[in-house]
């Protein structure tokens, strides 16, 4: 069975028919061609597939494409702007917050959401808020540092 959907992915509208059972992450990768979003677990445990759906961080393997009909989606590919990487991406680079990079898109998308929604962030809070994202390489401390830095920068800019 197929469902018609109209979804904006990184400012580009995508109107098409998809199988009713298609997960959002598969739509993003296979239909919208956004391969920066990856799958680490298929059970909603790892956060590798995190994207923004209408401004909220969502694990895209836990949502059907049909449920995102009409939504606007931001993936890692849409985060950088014409003048370069998003401050969160830059902070990850500067703090060596990634090694293999497989968890990175998901954590960065979640981190952007966290920094947008929280004005006071300390290490404990960040650790609690990124608890839904697994990283096997870094041991997390550098990730926490990167997010703290990006949060400071966002505050200065605000």
């Amino acid at each position: 069975m197929k469902t018609a959907v109209s979804i904006i992915v990184n400012d580009r509208r995508c109107e098409t028919e998809v199988p009713t059972t298609m997960l959002l992450v598969d739509f993003l990768r296979e239909v919208a061609g956004s391969k920066g979003t990856v799958v680490g677990c298929d059970t909603g445990q790892c956060g590798c597939c995190t994207v923004h759906v209408d401004g909220d961080a969502v694990k895209s393997c836990t949502m059907l494409t049909a449920q995102a009909d009409g939504a606007s989606i931001l993936t890692i590919e849409g985060l950088a702007s014409a003048d370069g990487m998003h401050p969160m991406q830059r902070a990850f680079h500067e703090h060596h917050a990634l090694q293999c990079g497989y968890c990175t898109a998901g954590i960065v998308m979640n981190a952007v959401d966290i920094v947008t929604k929280h004005h006071e962030l300390d290490e404990r809070t960040i650790r609690r808020l990124i608890e839904g994202n697994l990283c096997r390489c870094t041991g997390y401390s550098n990730i926490v540092d990167a997010i703290l830095e990006a949060a400071r920068e966002a505050k200065r800019g605000a």
């Binding site: 956004s34 920066g36 993936t75 590919e77 990487m85 990850f92 680079h93 990634l98 990079g101 898109a105």
Partner: peptide, 14 residues
């Protein structure tokens, strides 16, 4: 980092 941070990694699935 540049490619890994912007969704351009060349994992086999990509």
């Amino acid at each position: 980092d540049a490619r890994l941070l912007t969704g351009k990694a060349r994992y086999v699935e990509n």
